[in-house]
Design a protein around this nucleic acid. Sequence first.
DNA 1: TCTTTACAGTGACTGCGGTCACCACTAACC
DNA 2: GGTTAGTGGTGACCGCAGTCACTGTAAAGA
Lengths: 206, 206
Amino acid sequence: MEIDKKILSFLKPELVDLILKESSIRMIPKGTEILRQQQYVKVLPIVLKGLVKVYSRFDEKELLLYYIEPLQSCVMSFYAALKNTPSRVFAQTEENSKVILIPVQYLPIWLKKYPEFNELFFNQYNLRYSELLDTISHLLLDKMDKRLYDHLKRKTELISNTSIKISHTQLANELGTAREVISRIMKKLENDGKVEQNSGRIKIIG
Amino acid sequence: MEIDKKILSFLKPELVDLILKESSIRMIPKGTEILRQQQYVKVLPIVLKGLVKVYSRFDEKELLLYYIEPLQSCVMSFYAALKNTPSRVFAQTEENSKVILIPVQYLPIWLKKYPEFNELFFNQYNLRYSELLDTISHLLLDKMDKRLYDHLKRKTELISNTSIKISHTQLANELGTAREVISRIMKKLENDGKVEQNSGRIKIIG
DNA sequence: TCTTTACAGTGACTGCGGTCACCACTAACC
DNA sequence: GGTTAGTGGTGACCGCAGTCACTGTAAAGA
C-alpha cells in the first residue's frame, strides 16, 4: 500500500488517504476488456502499473484513441461517470496492469472539496485532446508508411521493450486500414531496414 | 446587461453577477482574429452572440477544430489561461459577435469556489472531444464529396441562413485539401442537384 | 492424424484525390 | 486605360491505398 501512496503523491495526502480508503486496487491481466461501448461506468480507473488502450469503433473500423499510462486516468470514463451516461468507447489492458478503481459516487464530492482533483482531470482532458490533435494531423498529412512506423515506434516505447508481438490484422485495425496494406508496407519497411519481423514479433530499428 | 444575465442563467446568480462585474463585454466584427498560435491568453471568451471559429494549422494546411456557438467557451483558451502556456490554436470570428471576456486571474479563484464553474468546462471539454472524434470518423470513413457536403450543411445551419458566401480556396483550407478538388466536387454536387452556386454564394438544397 | 482457423504474402485492378499547367473572369488599384 | 491579385474551371497525370482473389504457412483443436 505504501508504494501506491507514493505514486499518488502529486495529490494532497488527505485526498490520497481518502482515495485509498474508498477505492479498490486490482490487478488486471493483459488483454482484458475493462469497458465496453454503451456500458455505464461504475468505477473510475487510475492506472498504477501497466498499460490500458482506449479505442473507439466506427462501422467495422476501430481507432486507437489513447493509451492510459501509469498515473493517468480515462477522461471518457470520467465524463461518463460524472454524467451517468453510457460510455462511447472501449478500453482494454495491453499489459498486466494494476489499477485503482474509484467508486463514482465519490467523484462529485471530491471534485467539490479538492480543487487539485479538478485540475487532475483538466490536465487529463487537455492531454487527450492534444493526442487527438496529433492523430488528426497524422491522418491529414502522413502517408501510411510513416503512420505505421510511428505507431510501431510508439508502441514499443510504451512497453519499454525492443520488440512487440502483434498481428498485421491488429495493426490494420488500430490504424483504420486493411490487412493487405499493412503487409505491403511492412515488407517495404523491412527492405528499407527500418523494421525486422521474426516469428510474429516486430522490432524497430533505429 | 439584463439580457446577458438571462443568457448566463444556467450558472448561479451569484457567480453570474461576479462574472459580469469583473469581465468586459465586447462586440467583435466578423473576420477578426482573436487568438493566434503561440499567443498567451489573458482573457477567456464566452460567446453570447455570433460565431467564432477555432482552428489549428499543420504545415500549410489549416483544419477546423470547432465553432464556438453562443453560450459556449473555448477549452483551448481555458487551458492555456489556466496553465499560462501559449495557445496551440487560432480563433477568428465568423460573424459579428458579442463575447464576454473574463480576465484569467479570476479563473482559479472561481473554479475553487463554484463547483458548477468547473462543470461548465468539463462539459465544454467533453463537447469538443466528441467533435474531434466526429472529425476523425469523417476523415477515416468519408470521401471528400460527403465531407464537403456535410461541412457546407453544418456551416449554413450555424449561421441560420439559406446560403453562405465562401471561396473554394477557403473551403479547401477548412477541409485540409486542395482548391481544385473542391471545384471538381462542387461541380459534381451541383450536377446532382445538391447545391447551387451563384455569384460567390453557395446554397444547400434539401 | 486430419481439419480448421488465423495469419501472412502477392499480383492485379481501381478510384480517389493531390498536383501541375493553363485559361478565363472579376474586382481593385495605379 | 492597363496591371495585378484573387477566384473558378478543366484536362491530364499519377501515386497511394483499398479491394479482390488466391496461395502458402503455422498453430490450434478435434
